[in-house]
Nucleic acid binder design. Structure first.
Lengths: 148, 148
DNA sequence: CCTGAATATTTGACATCCTGAACCTTTCAT
DNA sequence: ATGAAAGGTTCAGGATGTCAAATATTCAGG
């Protein structure tokens, strides 16, 4: 149905791109959830764990990054903690804050998940290197423009 | 920071693109959830409602499209129904199936939501028409390659 | 030093989402 | 006519998310 190469207006073109992105989002979501479930993690747990790849982080910071209430993070970290994927330590600088850190097992889990997350890897193979580079640059411009 | 036009390997390029897409997905998700919440809908409810834009649909079909258990849809449709956004009617052809249809209010809600969903519309403005067309074509090829 | 405001986290109550198993109703093949 | 199969619902239970209230710690002023 969307075979006409040139839409009626630039606005229609934008809407078309937005719709395509929506499809992409749905696809990615499914694959991510699947990959997490394969390690008996939920999507939220996998996301938190992924955030800790670069080092420990206060609860508050996690909540801000995930755009949710801090009280929500408490539960997620609880479940990750009881399964040995993260630890909670009081920050010596400010004993109000708890630093959440991934354990060895936690690091391993995210690393594996990242590897098996072959989202779009196969379909991406349909694009040659030049096209992939073009795509990368376009996405980069979109994301830096959306600056969050 | 990522100004080198050609990463170390094609695999790295792919990973870069995948990471960018992950960022896009996060952004989209936030905006969608926000737009839905502005109409006191949840993301799941908005998605179901959006599915009914083209006409009534059996519960089972909704579940398949959303990749979830049918029993899940029951609850979501329940909530949409009590708020007057959808109706359930028995299919005359096969009285086992229930056809879910959006009401006037339901149609209006999705239409508005679709309009106010300005995801990437502003950042997309940074791309000229040629670039947007290129992006559209690349995304199309990715999605058809991922055949769902 | 003390008091009070502000911050980081937790707790509890509650709604939603999601799964899996058990159950009805209707259809369909034999 | 009977039994298997399919579409929905119900129920129990876990996870996610919000909000308000409570706790603990920090910090600024008097």
């Amino acid at each position: 149905m969307s075979n006409e190469p040139v839409p009626a207006s630039a606005d229609d073109l934008t809407r078309e791109v937005v719709d395509l992105m929506a499809g992409l989002v749905a696809l990615f979501h499914r694959e991510y959830e699947e990959a997490a479930a394969a390690r008996s993690l939920t999507g939220a747990q996998a996301k938190v764990l992924a955030l800790l790849r670069r080092g420990p982080m206060p609860m508050r910071h996690i909540a801000q990054t995930m755009s949710c209430e801090p009280s929500n993070i408490t539960g997620i970290v609880d479940r990750l903690e009881t399964r040995g994927f993260v630890t909670r330590e009081a920050d010596p600088q400010d004993r109000r804050v708890k630093l959440v850190a991934a354990t060895e097992a936690g690091q391993a889990a995210t690393e594996e998940l990242r590897k098996t997350l072959n989202f779009a890897r196969e379909p991406l193979a349909a694009l040659d290197e030049t096209e992939r580079t073009t795509l990368r640059d376009l996405l980069q411009r979109i994301l830096t423009g959306a600056n969050l």
